Amino acid sequence: MGAWGFQAFENDDAMDWLQDLEDGGAEVVRHGLNQVTDGYIEAPDGSVAVAAAEITAAAQGSPHGDLPENVVTWVRVHGAELTDGDAQLALTAVERVGGEESELAELWDEADEPEWTESLDDLAERLRTALR
């Protein structure tokens, strides 16, 4: 797992995906979220979904305090394209990535890093707040 931290953008898969994001709008975020809607979730798809969920939360007015500058810029330009439906999809994605059918959850569990789970809980709560 090419990760140097537990936050959404502290891994190679999310950082690679940001290159795709720069070339597109909300459909890139939706695609990242839709990759984890069913079946077993491979770690790269889980990492992308968490990054997409962070972007969705930011677009809905509940950003993480430490977003990469290119994400802040993307949200400023394209954030209005993401809807409440996207926020619900993001919440579902976060719950699935943190669940039992997720390679990423297994890897972080093996690494004994409770901060990863706490970061997902925080993201889920920010998405719930945005949906209220």
Rank of each mutant, 00 (worst) to 15 (best):
M15A: 11
N11T: 01
E101W: 11
Q88V: 08
G25H: 11
F6W: 15
L18H: 06
G2V: 09
E95T: 12
A93E: 03
A26P: 03
G25N: 10
S102R: 14
D86F: 00
G61M: 08
I41M: 04
D112T: 10
Q7N: 14
E118C: 09
W17L: 04
D86G: 08
L104N: 09
A130K: 04
V94S: 11
G5F: 08
D23T: 13
P68V: 07
L91N: 01
E10R: 07
D122L: 15
S47I: 01
P114G: 05
A80E: 12
A14G: 04
E69N: 15
H31M: 02
I55W: 05
A52R: 05
D122V: 11
G2P: 10
A52Q: 07
F9E: 05
T117K: 13
L67I: 02
L18R: 12
V48Y: 03
L107T: 15
V77N: 11
E42C: 09
L127Q: 04
A8C: 01
T117M: 14
N11I: 04
W4E: 09
A87H: 00
N70A: 10
E118F: 09
A14N: 04
L89Q: 07
G25W: 13
D12F: 08
Q88D: 10
P68T: 04
V94Y: 00
S47A: 15
S62G: 11
E106L: 11
L33C: 07
P63H: 04
S102H: 10
W74K: 04
V28G: 08
G61K: 08
W108N: 15
L127Y: 05
H64T: 14
V75Y: 06
W108T: 07
N34M: 04
R126Y: 00
V71G: 05
R96H: 06
M1Q: 11
R126K: 12
G46T: 00
G61D: 09
M15H: 15
E22M: 14
V77T: 15
G99M: 05
H64V: 09
E115V: 15
D45A: 12
T37G: 08
D38G: 07
T83W: 00
Q88G: 14
L21T: 08
G99H: 04
Q7G: 14
G98T: 03
W4H: 09
G85Q: 05
W4Q: 08
G65P: 08
P63N: 06
H64P: 06
G5S: 12
A53C: 02
E106V: 13
P44R: 05
L120Y: 05
T37M: 03
V72E: 14
E113A: 13
E125G: 10
V75W: 05
A53M: 02
L18I: 13
W4G: 08
G2L: 02
P44D: 00
W4R: 11
E100A: 15
D109I: 01
V71H: 03
A49P: 02
G25D: 15
L91V: 05
T129V: 14
E118M: 12
E27T: 05
